[in-house]
């Protein structure tokens, strides 16, 4: 799972982290609160998850509980991968 977090952090850093000094955000920091992702950013993130990890994200799963930090994202993908 830590490898997954490293991959996700790289994706977020390469695509969204604005300017300098934010790339070291904490694993449990909220992307919304830090203004790393806005509504279109979350849509891009979901498109990436679907493509890179082969998961399907339902509308109801588009929630801060699943997506709004590195830890939550990693846990969400793990759950999706192991879902029957």
């Amino acid at each position: 799972m830590s490898g997954l977090r490293v991959e996700l952090r790289r994706f977020v850093n390469e695509n969204f982290v604005m300017g300098s000094g934010r790339s070291d955000f904490a694993d449990d920091a909220s992307f919304s609160d830090l203004e790393i992702l806005d509504s279109s950013g979350f849509l891009e993130l979901v498109a990436y998850l679907e493509e890179a990890y082969g998961v399907t994200v339902a509308d109801e799963e588009l929630s801060p509980e699943n997506l709004d930090s590195l830890n939550k994202l990693a846990a969400f993908i793990e759950r999706k991968r192991h879902a029957p």
Binding site: L37, D38, S39, D59, L62, P64
Partner: peptide, 8 residues
């Protein structure tokens, strides 16, 4: 506050 999660 947030419009990022339409279902919410």
């Amino acid at each position: 506050r947030s419009t990022s999660f339409p279902v919410k």
